[in-house]
Amino acid sequence: MLVEHLSFAYPWMFAAFLLLPIISYLRLKKQVHRVLIPYAASWLPPRRNSAPPMWKAVLLYVSLALLILAAARPQKMIALQPTEKQGYDIMLAIDLSGSMLAEDAFQNGKRVSRLRAILPIIQQFIRNRPNDRIGIVVFGGKAYTLANLTMQHDWLEEQIGRLSVEHLEDGTAIGDALGIAVSRLTQKDRVQEGVRTGSFIVLITDGANNSGYLQPLQSAQLAARLGIPVFTIAVGRQGVVPFPVFDRAGHLRGYENRVSEIDFDTLQHISRITEGKHFHAEDAATVEKIFAEIDKATPKRFSAERVTLTTEEFHWLAIPALLFLFLSLLLRGSTNATSF
């Protein structure tokens, strides 16, 4: 990202403008030595209408002013913001358990599964944060790192587009997922003054922790100790939701109603101890709002270490100044005291 602006390195040089009236006064007072030469006028070639003496003085003062401006060192500053230095490290922990197939979300009036509903929104979220490094952890019965922290968001979006429930064994290992996310964030060193800043985890789930080695709260404490906020998003409605039933060949056979088992208490607890936030999304629209809120809670930061590329621009002033000076010297016959 480029930010251009013009500034002067030595603005105190502008004080030299005060010298101009003094110079003009001294020039007026100056005694000019002249030779008395009789008949000299008849030795000069007949004059064309030469430039009035004013011009010489005007050119001189313009060139002086330009020289002063040039001496003030105008610089074009281009602020270069290195992408690594700004923004957040974000781990997205996405639940891919079987319950994500529950079709309790609506998109364009059509019933879709929870997963289908949230994936475009996650993609949108990634797109909104071009300066952040984002990684993805997916979890079902076990948790896997789908993508380590990366700036290659196109690739991330592609990966997210491919996500489906079938890849993983059933279950919900929230604790493991959190733990992996935390460990991914700690691998990239971003400790400032002992506190990890600029990273957070977004945990998206629709169930309760029922597998894995770590308890969610253990992982949350780990995150809290490292100062990583965890935003938890509970997806899906409470109560009875339609659930697709597949036959062995994987064809949809129909729907059956099941009770969703979202563990709100644990999610709230996680977000509280890590100073994150807990959200409950019943449909796609709410998820969108939630991501917007996360965006707001973690404003895109700019790195304090700003690298600026300064280009000296004095020659744009100095060259015309010298040109004018030269021109004023060329104008002949007007070193009169009458010109100011």
Binding site: L36, I37, P38, A40, S42
Partner: peptide, 10 residues
């Protein structure tokens, strides 16, 4: 020379 023509004061 910067001069004054004494014949006509120019």
């Amino acid at each position: 020379f910067s001069a004054i023509d004494t014949s006509d004061g120019e």
